[in-house]
Write a protein that binds this DNA or RNA. Sequence first.
DNA 1: CTTATAAATGTTATATTATTACATACTGTT
DNA 2: AACAGTATGTAATAATATAACATTTATAAG
Lengths: 132, 132
Amino acid sequence: MQKEHNLSKNQKIIFDLIDKSRGPMKAYSILFNVQKKGIKAPLQVYRALDKLVEIGKIHKIESRNAFIACQNSSCQVSKATAFSICESCENVSEISNSKLSKYLSNFSDSSGMKYSKYNLEFFGLCKKCKSK
Amino acid sequence: MQKEHNLSKNQKIIFDLIDKSRGPMKAYSILFNVQKKGIKAPLQVYRALDKLVEIGKIHKIESRNAFIACQNSSCQVSKATAFSICESCENVSEISNSKLSKYLSNFSDSSGMKYSKYNLEFFGLCKKCKSK
DNA sequence: CTTATAAATGTTATATTATTACATACTGTT
DNA sequence: AACAGTATGTAATAATATAACATTTATAAG
């Protein structure tokens, strides 16, 4: 059972934008898009992004410095994320595969260190781009 | 069998620095450290880093914007990387676990997309930090 | 050996991504 | 109403990365 988060005004504006976007969005592109709504400064964007990431509504695609809405209906896996990234069209989608997430969540290496979080990014060509 | 790469002057200077460093190094910290050797501009650093990443001598830790020397003796896995990151002391080590790498290299999701590369970052507390 | 080509370098300027610092306002308790 | 925690507004600046262009060095083919 997840906690219901009431998003603040800026958080909602920014989440809605990212959620409606087709792909990952970059912070300054978000800024540009929400200026008409009164959000004027980078920090306002980054603060909302930080919070949204923290509560699992969005994820950061680290290799792209971009943000995408959580595609797992319940956003339960904000600490265990996996993405598929097309290196040609830059399409990104979140992978939800219970075998994979179980495997990685239980993974422990020779050092005996136990992990509380992971992020996995797969790269390749999506079907469309492969057939070009 | 891997190709033997003869590093250029700048590449060698920068690789040696990263290789001797205890942890991941950031680009501008590298720049600062090699200025005495005549490398004066960010671009000189980034170009060497790009090449070193491309040939697998170093890896980028995406979540930290930092670079670490490949710890797999033969650098065969530059396209299939996994790291363990301590969120307290920021110690990073490369994970070489053949089961994990096999599992991930063969992974394919419901979209049928086949991946040519992946990068995995695990987060947690290392032994030292946990016991504090 | 020389010519062609690719790779690497040097340099300046600038673009992009992200944070510090400080003041103020809102929200939900007790 | 008073408090604590969270969110906002604003300006300045730090940190990360790339564009554009000129030149030089290394490599391989004839």
